[in-house]
């Protein structure tokens, strides 16, 4: 039983980060109906920038701040240069364009910072906490990850449901023409959605970097898990993305713990396939996703 709990606790951390990436994908999807494959590439790039700031100043907080700003700016750049012109195209056009951005960002990062994995120091201890005489697979750093993720999710939910800005963003996403006719500056809202997604991705990148290593390709696999979580969650639902993001992390941890690490992607694939067969629009998709 305790091993089971250990696995679950371990899964929560990676699940939280997968949830953040899924959240970023959902934000972009909601604003522009595009699945942004470049999201993890943007996160990787901004995390490198955060690492530079960390190395220069020694401050994790400043690094996070730099990552956030860089994430927003990079999100805006990708949107303005690539996706805004592409929007008129079909799904495959946007998928291919974002994929092109991903490859370009990875190559650029490899050119600038090299392919070798670099370590990103955590702001608080990343050692297992000792509670009640035994060491649990959860550290103060994990706690920080949970708290930041929870705060972000709550803040985003409030933004979308309780503010004029959130309403403008939702209207722009659902029906750009009606939004324009209502006086909403739709292009600004879409760009804001991309910037916001960039920020969330940057947070995810800075949070995962200390427990992982940072290299141009180090977030690739997270893209697939986050994508799975976002798709299973219905792509439109913030709550779905978070729930299935964390869920994916837990499943991965349990499969890795009890079975073999190599089985994890198969299990994720099976979950994805079953969900899509039962509900082709995702578990939280189609009509149920209004609230958030």
């Amino acid at each position: 039983m305790t091993t089971f709990i250990d696995y679950l606790l371990g899964g929560f951390s990676s699940g939280a980060v997968i949830a953040l990436f899924a959240l970023a994908l959902v934000l972009v999807w909601r604003s522009t109906r595009i699945v942004n494959f470049a999201q993890v590439g943007q996160a990787m790039f901004t995390t490198f920038i955060a690492l530079i700031v960390q190395q220069a100043t020694g401050s994790w907080f400043l690094a996070l701040l730099a990552g956030l700003v860089a994430g927003a700016i990079l999100g805006l750049i990708v949107y303005a240069l690539v996706l805004r012109p592409v929007q008129r195209l079909d799904t495959s056009g946007s998928i291919i364009a974002t994929f092109g951005v991903l490859i370009s960002l990875q190559a650029l990062a490899a050119m600038i910072w090299g392919g070798e994995p670099q370590s990103f120091p955590p702001p608080v201890a990343n050692d297992g906490l000792e509670i009640g005489g035994r060491i649990w697979p959860i550290s103060w750093y994990d706690v920080l990850v949970y708290v930041v993720t929870a705060v972000l999710v709550v803040a985003l939910t409030l933004l979308f449901t309780r503010t004029s800005l959130g309403l403008s963003m939702r209207a722009s996403a659902f029906n750009p023409e009606v939004a324009k006719l209502s006086g909403i500056r739709v292009n600004r809202m879409l760009a804001f959605g991309w910037a916001l997604a960039g920020v969330v991705g940057a947070v995810a990148g800075v949070l995962i970097a200390p427990t992982a290593s940072l290299s141009p390709n180090s977030f690739d696999i997270l893209l697939i898990f986050a994508f799975t979580a976002a798709v299973v969650g219905g792509l439109d639902s913030l709550i779905g993305a978070v729930a299935f993001g964390v869920g994916t992390g837990l499943v991965l941890a349990l499969v890795t713990g009890y079975g073999e690490a190599g089985d994890a992607p198969i299990v994720v694939l099976i979950l994805l396939a079953i969900t899509l067969v039962v509900r082709p629009g995702g578990a939280f998709g189609r009509g149920k996703s209004r609230a958030v």
Binding site: E177, S182, I184
Partner: peptide
């Protein structure tokens, strides 16, 4: 203000949200 042809309300939003859209600025 133009009220466009067809269903120009946004089904995913509530009545109040649809109404408020028009004056968010």
């Amino acid at each position: 203000a133009l009220i466009p042809e067809g269903r120009s309300t946004i089904p995913e939003l509530t009545v109040e949200e649809n109404l408020h859209l028009g004056g968010l600025w």
